[in-house]
Design a protein around this nucleic acid. Structure first.
Length: 474
DNA sequence: ATGTTC
């Protein structure tokens, strides 16, 4: 397959090359700031590759949509590139329901209420899982959850589908874990099972398979009209606690080694420094928190589905996949240290790093849309190796929260959710004002993003998933 | 994204 270069350009910046995977319109819409940020990021020593996906947009010190790669034996880790929401990512469960089963708006409302009862969405919400030991979750991830929260029907331990971190047991420096202040432990503990705000969501969606990859979709257990549960959430306050705790030591190390870039806020340290190693350790704990938390959210949705639609409702795990992290990976047999910030790993069929159930098809790459718009299930293709098998993380913000509040009226927002129509996307918030900064007008068009990803030869669409009901936090 | 908040 020869990728279409309409969707790729190499930008020759003073500090090094930036690879951008985006069509003309999306590239122009990015503006100049992402290039300035890239030029700062490229000043981190030994960086070997840096790219933007078409949904890239400005974040703190780095862009959301960044893939940044080092050789493992001379690697650097940057808490700024990974960002505060360590382990943020997606999870999808497949139900045995059909979209027609949820045709009734009142039933969708009842279901949303049942989910809200189990998943607190308000600010400062406390989760309903106080019988879980936070330390176990941080150290062992899913393996640290009591058995009752890992039901056989979708337990990743035995079942057919896994994430690439669910089974990883990261090595811990438990002393580093214990140096995180106690009040932050308590805060994280009571947040287990909560959703968080911003673009995070729990959504029920209806599947439409893409004809070109129908066979892969069917092997994953998908069918047209099927209802799936999509979850987008991260490590809640724990990720921020890790970044705050590690920040000062990382900066001290930079001073000691005489390192820095044009951006004083851009923090990074050698992987083999004490500050770098401690950060990586605590980042792993945040990845474990995030995966276990998404698992608990899915457990709560399963319970809500059963209460609303009967005990025969199933929710089997399809996959759980992060888009904010840094991990060692092997590419063409070479050990590399890969940062993905708002970038999704997407391995092609036959790639040896696919978990066993997805070895032949490639694993599902889970891509959220903005509110009221479709999400996508994608799969890697061989030519995705040119971007270290990284694709987009979603639609990508195009307008700040404040600018969106100024621009969009509640009526326009309601219209985009088809409020009052038979096919209304039912939202938990009665007052849409509270989440108007999440309206689709705040985001790029996800369909265009997907077109660029596919056009650049990074991945292919397996299914388009239309929203039926959405639960959002504030 | 998050918590905190002059």
């Amino acid at each position: 397959m020869i990728p279409n270069e309409t969707y790729y350009r190499r930008i020759d910046l003073p500090a090094g090359d930036l690879h951008v995977f985006a069509g003309d319109a999306l590239f122009r819409a990015m503006g100049a700031k992402p290039l300035e940020i890239a030029n700062n990021n490229l000043q981190i020593p030994n960086i070997r590759y840096m790219s933007y996906t078409p949904d890239a947009h400005v974040g703190v010190g780095t862009c959301i949509g960044t893939t940044a790669v080092w050789q493992a034996d001379e690697g650097f880790v940057s808490p700024t590139i990974v960002g505060s929401d360590i382990g943020c990512g997606m999870r999808v469960h497949l139900t045995n329901l059909d979209a027609d089963d949820l045709k009734d708006v009142k039933l969708r409302r009842k279901l949303v209420k049942a989910i809200e009862k189990r998943i607190p969405t308000e600010n400062h919400a406390r989760g309903h899982f106080s019988d879980i030991r936070l330390e176990d979750v941080l150290i062992k991830g899913l393996h640290g959850l009591p058995g009752k929260y890992v039901p056989d029907a979708y337990t990743p331990r035995r079942a057919t589908s896994l994430t690439h971190v669910e089974h990883a047991r990261f090595r811990y420096d438990e002393d580093a874990l214990n140096r995180i202040p106690e009040h932050l432990w308590h805060r994280a503990h009571r947040q287990l099972g909560t959703l968080g705000g911003g673009n995070h969501f729990v959504e029920l969606q209806a599947v439409t398979l893409d004809e070109a990859n129908r066979d892969i979709g069917e092997r994953w257990g998908l069918r047209d009209g099927q209802v799936i549960v999509m979850i987008h959430s991260g490590s809640r306050s724990w990720g921020g606690a890790v970044n705050q705790h590690c920040g000062s030591e990382v900066v001290k190390t930079m001073r000691k080694l005489g390192l820095g870039t044009a951006d004083p806020k851009l923090a990074f340290a050698p992987l083999d420094s004490e500050a770098g190693a401690t950060y990586v350790n605590l980042m792993y704990a945040a990845l474990n928190f995030a995966v276990a938390n998404r698992h608990l959210l899915a457990f709560a949705v399963r319970d809500a589905l059963r209460e609303t639609l009967g005990p025969q409702a199933e929710t089997r795990t399809l996959y759980d996949l992060m888009h904010n992290y840094a991990l060692e990976e092997s590419h063409d047999g070479e050990p590399l240290f890969v940062h993905r910030k708002g970038a999704t790993r997407s391995l092609p069929p036959g790639h040896p790093d696919n978990p066993e159930p997805y070895r032949e098809t490639g694993h599902p790459a889970l891509i959220p849309g903005s509110m009221g718009t479709s999400s996508y299930l994608m799969v890697g293709v061989p030519s995705g190796a040119r971007n270290y098998h990284s694709i987009c993380h979603g639609a990508g913000r195009v307008r700040s929260r404040n600018a969106t509040k100024q621009l969009v009226t509640v009526d326009e927002f309601a219209a985009s959710l088809r409020v009052g129509q038979e096919d209304e996307v039912v939202v938990n918030h009665r007052a849409l004002e509270a989440i108007i900064d999440e309206s689709p007008q705040a985001y790029k068009d996800v369909d265009q993003i997907i077109e660029s990803v596919a056009g650049a030869g990074l991945a292919a669409v397996v299914a388009k998933c239309r929203p039926l009901a959405t639960v959002k936090g504030v």
